[in-house]
Design a protein around this nucleic acid. Structure first.
Length: 190
DNA sequence: AGGAAGATCTACT
DNA sequence: GTAGATCTTCCTA
């Protein structure tokens, strides 16, 4: 079952946690790509989170974070597109960064796009998974309740680990990174 | 025009 | 596992 708009209109941290285990699906001309979300991070807005792209306030760049929830927010860092899902309770600002996926379907296509044959390395990392799924700038603002790129529910049970976020230079002490315990596809901290 | 950025790759100890 | 170079956009001056 596809996740509804209501799912995303709650506290960012809560959504980040509940997105674990959900399945990200991308319908492309070349085939269907599916991956289970195994690692996420929550990012808040102005004044709340110095590591967030939105902490300085509104700009063209991070616009989607201020707009309707349930949309994709894609941006480039260090030659990598990063996929975020806009999620926050009413009147707030925030998004969930998808950091890692466990490939489920369309693996051959992902391998072709990434030029790697090691499944474990296919989607283990925010920049890698966007490349594997073929996500780029044109997906910025895409509605995730649509039929192109969306998320599906799952009933899987697992243990969630909460840690500090990775790779950022500010706001390091916040425990806003979540991942599935013992999952091989989680990026191993750096 | 310059610099920073939520990272990745490759090559080593 | 850790380290360093390098990558492309957007923001700020």
């Amino acid at each position: 079952m596809k996740l509804s708009r209501e799912f995303y209109s709650r506290d960012t941290k809560k959504v980040a946690k509940e997105l674990l285990g959900k399945v990200l699906i991308h319908e492309t001309k070349e085939g269907t790509l599916k991956g289970k979300i195994v690692e996420t991070e929550a990012y808040y807005g102005k004044g709340e989170d110095p590591a967030s792209r939105a902490h300085k306030g509104k700009s063209n760049f991070c616009m989607p974070m201020f707009e309707e929830v349930g949309k994709a927010f894609v941006y480039m860092v260090h030659n990598n597109w990063l996929l975020n899902i806009v999620s926050h309770s009413k009147g707030k600002v925030g998004a969930v960064l998808i950091r890692a996926l466990e490939p489920l379907e369309g693996i051959e296509l992902m391998e072709k796009r990434r030029s790697v044959n090691n499944i474990r390395n296919l989607c283990r990392g925010p920049g890698r998974l966007t490349k594997a799924l073929g996500i780029n700038r044109s997906y910025n603002g895409v509605d995730l309740t649509g039929n192109d790129l969306f998320l599906e529910d799952s009933n899987e049970k697992f243990v969630i680990i909460k840690t500090k976020r990775i790779g950022i230079s500010k706001g390091k002490s916040k425990l806003l990174r979540f991942y599935i315990k013992d999952n091989t596809f989680v990026s191993s901290g750096r």
